[in-house]
């Protein structure tokens, strides 16, 4: 089954919840082709395809796997549990021990950050993190919050007995401006999580970029990009400290890892690729961290961050 089929299934899933009095003839026609029946997970099964409808995605019981990857993206990957790298796996490929009745679960803390305000059972991990929530696999059964230390430990269950765990630690993400050489007065932007070396978006080959920009100009330059760690020889000019939730920190780390494995093209034109500042803004934006309008020049970005966060 191709990706197009999965997308169609998801579109159909969203139409099925509509009130039939307001649905279009096409939707009504499609809905008549679905005869639902209950299965052991308590989810509806499409009689035609044999797939089970969970709130977030479809599960192919015949194959024992999800039809689409976990919508939480790489943020749901926990390196302590390598099975989570397989975003198509159902209950971490252990169906005899687990079921996942909710598919996904998200807890939102109150404004004081010392108690749970609400639990969203219809959320995805990506949406959860972007909204400042905390995600656990399965239904949330217990949560320990240490507001002073900014830590959250969650326990969930996917079958009522076995437990899943998630641990989050609020962090300060550091966006830094560097001068690496006098030949680049516009400077460089890098990002780092606590205890890590700053990394930033660069062209894969400097000489390629130079010849590309000479040939194509400021507007149409684009070359393969790469994520490089900041060198020790550069001079640190400014630092912006951006506080994020533990969930957002994990998402940012996952996006950095994803960019390292599969870097975007480098371009000064954001329509064609990402420069160092735009990459950092996109990375933070993907985790739901506000950075304001896109600023391709490092100095402009740091000034903008200065109006929102502490800049030293």
């Amino acid at each position: 089954m191709g990706t197009g089929d999965i997308d169609t299934m998801q579109v159909l899933a969203s139409t099925r919840t509509l009130d039939t009095s307001t649905t279009s003839p096409l939707v009504c026609l499609l809905s008549t082709t679905f005869a639902h029946q209950s299965i052991s997970t308590g989810k509806e099964r499409d009689s035609e395809s044999g797939n089970d409808y969970f709130e977030a995605r479809y599960y192919a019981s015949s194959m024992g796997r999800w039809l689409s990857p976990d919508p939480g993206g790489m943020a749901v990957v926990d390196l302590e549990f390598p099975q989570t790298l397989n975003r198509y796996a159902y209950v971490n490929n252990n169906p005899l021990s687990f079921t996942d009745p909710f598919g996904l679960d998200c807890a939102y803390l109150n404004n004081a950050g010392n108690g749970v305000e609400s639990v969203d059972q219809q959320s995805s991990a990506g949406e959860c993190g972007k909204s400042g929530g905390y995600w656990v696999n399965g239904g949330l059964t217990n949560i320990n919050i240490n507001a002073d230390q900014g830590s959250v430990q969650m326990t969930g269950t996917t079958n009522g007995t076995d437990q899943t765990h998630a641990s989050y630690q609020d962090a300060n993400v550091v966006v830094s401006e560097w001068n690496n050489t006098i030949a680049n007065p516009a400077n460089h932007i890098a990002i780092s999580l606590p205890g890590q070396r700053p990394v930033g978006q660069n062209p894969l080959s400097d000489s390629d970029f130079i010849s590309n920009i000479a040939l194509n100009g400021f507007k149409y330059n684009v070359v393969p990009g790469t994520i490089k760690p900041q060198t020790n020889t550069g001079k640190l000019l400014k630092v912006a400290v951006v506080p994020v939730t533990g969930m957002q920190a994990k998402m940012i780390q996952a996006f950095i890892n994803q960019s390292m494995a599969n870097p975007s093209n480098y371009s000064l034109n954001t329509q064609l690729g990402l420069d160092c500042a735009t990459w950092v803004q996109q990375l933070l934006g993907n985790a739901g961290v506000q950075t304001g309008p896109m600023q391709p020049m490092p100095d402009d970005l740091m000034n903008q961050l200065g109006s929102m966060y502490k800049v030293y």
């Binding site: 401006e177 050489t181 680049n184 516009a186 130079i210 480098y266 000064l268 420069d275």
Partner: peptide, 24 residues
């Protein structure tokens, strides 16, 4: 850190070094 509004008009060819982040 210098403003791009200052750098680009006074030093237009610095655009060639804008992506150069390694040491010389």
């Amino acid at each position: 850190s210098l403003s791009p509004m200052l750098i680009l008009p006074l030093w237009p060819t610095s655009i060639f070094g804008i992506a150069f982040n390694g040491p010389l």
